[in-house]
Design a protein around this nucleic acid. Structure first.
Lengths: 172, 172
DNA sequence: GCCATCTCCTTGAAACTTGAACAAGTCGGG
DNA sequence: CCCGACTTGTTCAAGTTTCAAGGAGATGGC
């Protein structure tokens, strides 16, 4: 039952994944979807918002004066401006974020974390950190944590829409 | 500017992430969202469906007689039955999947991959594999690939809704 | 100053996801 | 056989995301 474990060029000229690569890829898909779902549910239950929205609040909390321009926040969160627009509208309804005009650019808007927003984070952050810890860090050795960090940095760098290689479009 | 790099119990009794853990966690979030977005777009463009739908077709293609019960397919893809129901409805409209009644259980339905479905996979799989390869495997050393696989298996196991520990509810 | 062009952000509609509720079918004890 | 408990898969409504389009303001060459 031994299968070939190399990925030779197929007749069509592309390489399939080796058996081992396939195992890794499936484990990756499996784990990342489970983790994302897990955290989404945890936050939906405890904070009343999906994981990505929580990340937006965190992003604002870390910014000077608890505010960021929409485009800046969208880039940090790796989402489109459109998506952010809808998301901020929802968070505004919750009273956790408020919009403010940018004085120096009349097109611009700041998303500003409100005191209620800060309070929500203060109340829910510990539970979220615990969830991340239990699902990830508590299960990995220090070496594995280090390796994971390095791997993810490599992957992220390769997909970065800006920065590295942005002016070398033929490499993309 | 040196910050403490341990995560002592806070007054409230929970542990924060260390600076290093935080770096790893952000790299993880960053990389996984970029990769997911990348593959979603790649498949939307080349195959006309999101990544998860593609995974459903793959799941069916690998099953005996290219068919699976809805619940079984949902479990393999790690999605809810509700979501699967909608997804199959859409794939059915595309002509890539068809439903069939289960003879032995009148409640049951099979999702069956059609010939058109097979054809879509045949046409789009190479491009998808290439995208995965370029984004992930081509950038990692063999050691890193191995480490990634092990890490992801550990994480997945810890979040598995069934299997390990399912009958030991007090451990969850 | 003017205009083409770009950037910032929003909008609306369509697609997708979620969670709860539901009809229909199965199962097992009594 | 019958009934309660469970399973299977769908549906509905509400929420989220995407994509294309667009309004408003900034920018720079001429």
């Amino acid at each position: 039952m031994e299968r070939m474990n190399t990925a030779p060029d197929s007749a069509a000229g592309h390489r399939w994944l080796t058996d081992e690569e396939q195992r890794v890829w499936r484990a990756y898909l499996h784990a990342t979807t489970l983790l994302e779902d897990h955290l989404d549910r945890q936050l939906q239950r405890d904070a009343g918002m999906p994981h990505i929205y929580y990340g937006l609040l965190v992003g604002l909390a870390e910014a000077p004066r608890r505010r960021l321009r929409m485009t800046e926040l969208a880039m940090r969160a790796k989402i489109t401006r459109s998506r952010l627009s809808h998301a901020i509208a929802r968070l505004e309804k919750n009273g956790w974020v408020r919009r403010e005009d940018c004085p120096s650019d009349k097109r611009g808007q700041f998303a500003v974390l409100t005191d209620e927003g800060v309070e929500v984070l203060r109340r829910t952050a510990p539970g979220h950190v615990t969830a991340v810890r239990q699902a990830l860090f508590d299960r990995l050795s220090p070496e594995q944590q280090k390796a994971l960090g390095e791997i993810m940095e490599i992957v992220a760098e390769g997909l970065q829409p800006d920065e590295a290689g942005a002016d070398l479009p033929w490499l993309r």
